[in-house]
Amino acid sequence: MTTQTDLPVLLPFTLGSSATPRRKACLLRPATWCSILVVAALAGAATANASASAAIVSGVIPTMWKWAPLVLQGFAFNLLVSVLSMAIGTLAGLFLGLAQVSLYGPVRRTSWLATQFFRNAPWLVLLFYCMYLLPFEIEIFGLTILLPAWCKAVIGLSLPVMANVAEIVRGGIQSIPLTQWESAEALAFSRRQTIWMIILPQCLKRMAPPWMNLYAILTMATTLVSLVGVQESMTMTRAALVAEARTDLFIPMYMMLLALFALYCYPIARWTQRLERKFAVRD
């Protein structure tokens, strides 16, 4: 009698089949995904309009089309915020992660504390702190630097990104076998050389998938900045709803926003999965 399983060791051996069923079931094909979105959008629009008159129904698509440029503009701003926060967070996180494997106790402990603090604080609370604690203008040597709200939002979002990247870097470094360190030592590499030339290059491929995952999460979290008064796609959608003053638009408009984020983040998720699979086989 055979039992259901996806463990390769329990399955009959066949030549050339390396992919396990579990992996195949992981993700839907892009075409399937797109059709799900379209159906969901239509369903949302349909329920919203169920009670409204036919005249209103016919106006939904043109109205959404009318506001689409503005929402897209807001969405582009979300992407800008996500890219900037990711860049700043990655750079800062790299050093924070390296500090966590430092040979000096105080450096190691301080960086560990900072990482734990920013990693476990709610993103929105960090945003609030940055918005209201950072000044609007900074004067350095008589030079006035303006710090508009969206810059503060970028800083606010890059803090948790920094802490998460630090953990990714630390985990990556610690996943490299100790023998690599020992061999480097034997070949007279300094510690700095070992890290930058031997350990980090090997970590890169292991760190890429979680890093991309983090980016996708960050992109979706950029809508949080609407809560601290920065104008982005979420605020634009809301303002459009106010200007139209029609509740039947509510669900379709937010569905449009959802679709934008899903269409942007989904390829990242797929790519991440592909990288994971690729590296998993080689390791």
Partner: peptide
């Protein structure tokens, strides 16, 4: 305000 019709609200042009 940009979300308080008719005191301050958005046009599709932004």
């Amino acid at each position: 305000k940009n979300d308080y019709k008719p005191w301050g609200f958005l046009e599709p042009s932004g």
